[in-house]
Simulated assay, not measured.
Amino acid sequence: MDNKYDTIIVGGGILGTFHAFHALELGLKVCLVEKNAYPQGATTQNFGQVVPSGMNSKWQKFGRRSLRIYKDIQSKFDISIRQNGTVYLASNEEEERLLVELRAINNNNEYESKMLTKSECLERYPGLRRSYVTAGLFFPQEVTVEPRTMIHRLQEYLIQEKGLVMKTSFPVISCERTTTGVEVRSTRGETLQAGKVIICNGSDFKTLYPELFAASDLEISKLQMMQTKPQENYSLKGSILTGWSIRRYEAFHECPSYAEIKRNEPQDSPQKQWGVHILFKQAMDGSVILGDSHQYADVDRVEDLGYDLDMDIDNFMVEEAKKIIQLPTYDIQRRWYGMYSQCKTSDIFKKTIDEHIHIVTGIGGKGMTGSAGFSKKNIATIFNT
C-alpha cells in the first residue's frame, strides 16, 4: 500500500532530513513528514557555518564525516555548499596560545589546519582591523551553506534522485504501535504505517510524549543574529570566528590552557551575560550575517526568553563587530532570532520507546555541522546494519 514505509521520519529539519538520507542509502522506503508547509525552525535560522574545528573530538569525527557527505552531494546537485574555509582570529596572547594548542590537537587527529600570522590575516580578510588581530588558525576543508535554501535543495535532491516521499503540512498527533509496526496519524486524519518511526523534532516530541518531554533535561537556547545590506565591491571568504568564539567553542575545552584562561575572565561582562561571540559570514548576495548571542531557559519556561529581539544585545554586537572588521556598511537589512534545544547533561537527546519508535533531538548548535555524520551512525544503530 502507498501509505506503508520501512521508516517514517518525523521532522523535516536538518537532523530529520539526514536521517532520511541515510535510511534511503540503505535501500529503505522512507517517508519524511513535516508539520509546516516547509522547515522553518533552527535549520533555517542559523549562520550556515559547517565547522568541525569548533567541536570536541567525538563530534569533530561526525562533523568531518558531514563535510564529506556535503561535498559528495554538492558534486551531484547544487545545495549551496561553498568550500572556503574557517578562520579563528585571536585578539591577544591568551587566545593565540589556545590556537596553537588547538592546532597541535588537530595535527594529532590528522585534521588539516594552518596558523596564520597577523600579516597573513590582514591580507586574507579585507577590513580586518590591525588593532584587533594577533594571529589566526585556518581550516581549509570547512564549508558554508545558505541555510534558508540548502534544506529545500537537499530535500529536492532526495525526492528526485533517491526516491524520498515527503509530506508537508502534516502535523503528527499520534504515533501508536500496531501488531506489524507503527501507525502515524495527522491532524487531518491521514494515516501512515511503518516498521520504525524516528522523531527528530522537539515540538513533535512534546506533542506526542508530553510527560517524557517534561521529564527530559532539554533546554532552549535563543540566538540573535542580523544581516547587513549587500556590501559593495567587498568579499569576505569563509566563516570568520573571533576571540570570544575561541573562548567558547567546545574544541578549545580540550586545550591545556583553557581552564586557566576561563578562570581569569571577567564574570560580569556583557559577553558573559548574553553569551555573545562575534561571527561573520558573507552570504551569496554579498550581505554579511553577523552575531550571535545565547540566552537559555528550561523547555517548560521558554516564554522566559521573550518573543522579541533585545536591541541592547543587537547594538552591543554591532559595536563589537566594528572593533574587529571595518565593513563598507553596517546598515542592517534584517534581524531575527533562532531557537534550538539542547541537553544539559548529554550531547544529544536519544530515547527508544520500544524497538519501533525512536526519539532523537536536542542536537543544539551542532545541527548544521554534525547532523549528516551523526545520522549515519544512528540509522545504522537503529536498523542494526
Rank of each mutant, 00 (worst) to 15 (best):
R124F: 11
T168E: 14
E219Q: 14
H19S: 04
K237M: 10
V10N: 02
Y258D: 03
I379T: 04
T180D: 15
S221E: 07
V172H: 06
Q141A: 10
S75Q: 13
E123R: 09
G286A: 08
R68F: 06
E161D: 09
Y70F: 14
G291Y: 07
I313E: 03
S131T: 15
Y330S: 07
G202D: 06
I151G: 05
Q83H: 08
N109A: 15
D292V: 05
V318L: 15
C121E: 08
G27F: 04
G136Y: 07
C121V: 05
S239V: 07
N264Q: 14
N233F: 04
T381P: 00
T149K: 13
D308P: 00
N108Q: 09
A42H: 08
G275Y: 10
T117V: 12
Y249W: 13
E303Q: 15
E265Y: 03
R148V: 09
Y38N: 06
D6K: 07
D347N: 13
Q45L: 15
L158A: 02
P140D: 07
S119L: 12
C121T: 08
D6S: 13
F47R: 10
C200F: 10
T43R: 04
P171V: 02
T134A: 12
L327C: 13
S287N: 01
K222A: 10
V10H: 02
W244M: 14
S269F: 08
F21P: 00
T352E: 13
S66P: 09
E146F: 09
E190Q: 14
K58F: 11
S57L: 01
M225F: 12
Y125E: 07
D268A: 09
M339P: 00
T178P: 10
I151H: 03
M115H: 12
T228N: 06
M284W: 02
G367K: 01
F138H: 14
E176Y: 01
C200L: 08
S53G: 04
V143P: 04
N107W: 01
D6F: 09
G181R: 03
K377M: 08
S239I: 11
S119F: 04
F280H: 06
S57V: 01
R188E: 13
T179K: 13
V360L: 04
V50Q: 03
C31Y: 01
I363W: 02
F316R: 05
R335P: 00
N315I: 07
A20Q: 06
A297W: 04
M150A: 14
H19R: 01
Q83L: 02
N233S: 14
G41V: 01
K162F: 02
E95G: 04
K222I: 09
D78W: 06
E355W: 03
L154N: 08
Q74C: 03
E355G: 11
K29R: 15
F77I: 01
G27E: 07
D354E: 05
Y88D: 00
S66L: 10
P147Q: 03
M225R: 11
G370P: 00
S131A: 15
K272V: 13
S57A: 12
T329P: 10
H152N: 12
K366G: 02
Y38V: 05
T134M: 06
E183R: 15
D304K: 15
S293R: 07
K272A: 12
D268S: 11
I353H: 04
L116W: 14
R103I: 02
H356T: 12
A37C: 08
E94A: 14
E260N: 15
F280K: 04
V50N: 04
I198T: 06
A37V: 10
G85F: 05
